[in-house]
Design a protein around this nucleic acid. Structure first.
Lengths: 230, 230
DNA sequence: GATTGTCGGATTGTCAACAATCCGACAAGT
DNA sequence: ACTTGTCGGATTGTTGACAATCCGACAATC
């Protein structure tokens, strides 16, 4: 007999949090939009208690903001927020890279990253930006997971969620760029065997300058296939 | 007339979260201890709803862990947890140092840090380890705050809280070491004007090896004035 | 016209009651 | 003796009702 995992129990508040997180990240709600408890509880078929608990979680994750006695609102991220998100994301990814390159997970991580980069290349060639975008996120998440630090990964998840919000809010979504997948392949190559400095340099190049990316994005609002970093 | 700040509204759940956080960090509850909702709500004079919301927050902060239908427990941190906490803390502090040294907050941050280090020195000379310990935490928090990143500071706060838990759980509290305050003075000096590499090197030295620190702490359980890092 | 005061409606915050879950103790069956 | 089934008690999870808060609209006053 195969060994089994314990059955995972999920409270209603957990399920509600997951649903809301997905909807927020999918852009279902406008930035700054208020989530009305009574209306939302009715729509989800739950009472307000678990909904409040769920929203509390998302407030902690940075996706919602709560004003006592006024309500809970979807965050409205500014250009400064974008800069901050990118700064923290970059810091976390760098920390992960430092650990991966100096530790025992280097080749395993590179292998996973190569897998994702290849699938991302295929998706891009097939013109499927949505899948490509998801794989882009997965690439970076896998990179951070490669450090083997639960807390680093958990922190990264929240910041990555905010990145998605920034994409919707400030940049009009994930955009395809011709060589984006190849950049990821290159990163995976470097992570496999390059010196730390070379990896970090490429990572920096890969991120670019968030503000400049934003400005280009706003100028090219009719979609000139310009880069949007993840 | 002086300009006034808006009056801050606090929900009961916020107040409960703050109280619980303080009590947990003060070691009021044993590692792994269950917090019983009915009993605790009675003791705090609130209903279970706000208490549940508060506990949800602390679960997100990593101080509590929730098992559906079983209850909420104070986290029981292992040696691996200690390593992880220290790794993430160090990563965040490094990221802060990189930004401070390359940005415009260098001298202001160093000034604040010097102030704290001096007060810490005085407290240590006066034999007041508790104040010294609090100042030690404040030093590092101020260092991270100097990066001017709200998200970095917020993340650091949660990891620092876990550090305090580790101290209680695994190391028997904050211990005084003769030259600890001077180490902080030295760090503040380096942050004021040294090259990045020198600052980072001293920061690494300052942290030491968490596992070795733990082992020394367990061996010296009768208190040989050995270092406990923050 | 500007300022102050009042009120009602919408919404959030809290509470207490009931439902659901889980675990341990005990009984029954093999 | 070991395994399976049942039940009760303790606790958590959810619900709906009531309390509290806030804001905007409107009236009254200067």
């Amino acid at each position: 007999m195969a060994a089994s995992k314990p059955i995972e129990r999920l409270t209603l508040s957990t399920l509600v949090a997951e649903r809301l997180r997905g909807d927020i990240l999918a852009g279902t709600y406008l930035p700054g939009q208020q989530l009305h408890e009574v209306e939302l509880a009715l729509a989800l078929g739950v009472s307000r208690g678990p909904l409040r608990e769920a929203m509390q979680r998302l407030v902690q994750e940075g996706l919602l903001t709560s004003i006592p006695h006024r309500g809970v609102f979807v965050v409205d991220l500014s250009e400064d927020d974008l800069r901050d998100v990118f700064f923290v994301r970059a810091s976390l990814e760098e920390a992960a890279v430092r650990r991966i390159v100096s530790g025992g997970t280097r080749s395993a991580t590179a292998k996973l990253l190569h897998g994702i980069a290849d699938r991302m290349d295929k998706a891009m060639r097939a013109g499927d930006s949505a899948v490509g975008g998801d794989l882009d996120f997965a690439f970076h998440r896998t990179l951070v997971d490669g450090a083997g630090s639960a807390r680093l990964s958990r922190t990264y998840a929240t910041v990555q969620a905010e990145t998605r919000l920034c994409l919707h809010r400030l940049m009009g979504g994930y955009r395809r760029r011709a060589d984006l997948a190849l950049e990821h392949v290159r990163l995976a190559d470097l992570i496999a065997s390059a010196p730390l400095d070379a990896v970090l340099e490429e990572l920096h190049r890969h991120f670019g300058d968030p503000a400049a990316t934003l400005r280009r994005s706003l100028k090219d609002s009719d979609g000139a296939a310009e880069d949007t970093t993840r």
